[in-house]
Computed example of a mutant assay.
Amino acid sequence: MNQHENRDEETLFGSAPPPREEVRTDLPNAARMYDYYLGGSTNFAADREAAEAGSAAMPHAREYARANRAFLQRAVTFLAGNGIDQFIDLGSGIPTVGNVHEVAGQFNQRARVAYVDHEPVAVAHAQRLLNDLSGVTMTLADIRDPEAVLSAPGVAELLDFSRPVGLLAVAVLPFVPDQDEAREVLATYRGVCAPGSHLVLSHISALSATPQQVAAAEEVMARTPTPVRWRAPHEIEELLEGFSPVDPGLVPLPLWRPDSTVTEDEVNIANAYGAVGRLDG
């Protein structure tokens, strides 16, 4: 490990020990790359290098990350405004400024949020950030193992699944490349949710990206521990199975209930679709 990486670890973990799971600072990680795209500091040199390679392959990678964050905020605002006061954020990454607990807290200061991620650095950093907050937890678990997620104390002891829950799957399902597995994973989570629960879903998809750029971006991520799959809109729609989409349905991310006028260029460079679905009784 070089001197720069040592400084990185000191900055991220402070005086607290790193998580028990081995942290590979020499391998890029999707959660830390995403943090870099958003302008965060919870990333290592390998993450920054891979993120720049991703930007070279798909020039609008940063816009994609920002569009997802803005969509998450609008969707949580919608759910909280409609009475949802508990959320589980699957593959949350690092819950930085403007994340779920802050948005939901504007509507209900007693809102409960369970963040879940499988990346040790993201979890350790988040636990430091959230340590003094009540009603907010961060769990180290793989969202592809719903039973482990749902039985984890930070989830099971915080959320009441007999009441409606906001199930957030924002920019995470590309990391479950197999379509059948992605559907099964969501079906398991859906199965424990009460009627009135909502799924918030976003997914990378080619709008302005060319087939060559998609292939190059997938190739960059194939060199990391977390390969991705871009999905066509009809494949993303399949992931909403069991939920009734609320207006305007599955649309390019910037067009989902925008706060202001959206340009065609902003729509295209986001390269992602999103939807919110309601679980009916």
Rank of each mutant, 00 (worst) to 15 (best):
H234E: 15
D117N: 07
Y273K: 00
L72F: 02
V246S: 11
P17G: 04
D85A: 10
V185G: 00
A51Y: 08
Q86K: 05
D180N: 14
R62H: 01
G40I: 10
A126H: 13
G249D: 07
V165Q: 11
D265L: 08
E184S: 15
L201H: 00
L173Q: 14
S41W: 09
R24L: 13
A206P: 04
F107W: 06
V121G: 00
T11A: 15
A206L: 06
A232V: 13
A209R: 06
V123A: 02
L133A: 11
H4W: 09
M1Q: 12
A80V: 01
F175Q: 00
Q73C: 09
G98A: 10
R278P: 01
T137G: 04
L167E: 00
H101Y: 04
D265W: 08
F161E: 04
T137N: 03
E102Q: 12
R32N: 12
Q212K: 14
V200C: 02
F87L: 01
V200M: 03
D145S: 09
A232C: 07
E219I: 02
V220S: 00
H101C: 02
D85F: 00
A104H: 06
D247K: 12
V192H: 06
D280W: 09
E21C: 02
D117W: 05
N271A: 04
V262D: 08
A182K: 08
R48G: 06
E264C: 05
I269D: 01
G83Q: 00
S41P: 02
P258D: 15
V149I: 05
E147I: 12
R278F: 01
S197M: 04
A56V: 11
A61Q: 14
A171Y: 05
H101D: 03
P19S: 07
T42M: 08
V100D: 06
H4V: 11
P19K: 06
V192I: 06
S92I: 04
Y37D: 14
L186E: 04
G14V: 12
L150G: 11
R144A: 05
I88G: 07
L207Y: 11
R223E: 15
N68Q: 14
G39W: 06
R183L: 14
R62Q: 03
D89V: 08
R66I: 11
W256A: 03
L12G: 03
P254T: 01
A61V: 09
P258W: 11
V123M: 05
A46K: 10
E238T: 12
P19A: 09
R74G: 02
A194H: 10
F161C: 04
T188E: 14
D280G: 07
M33H: 04
A50Q: 02
E266R: 13
P245R: 13
P153C: 01
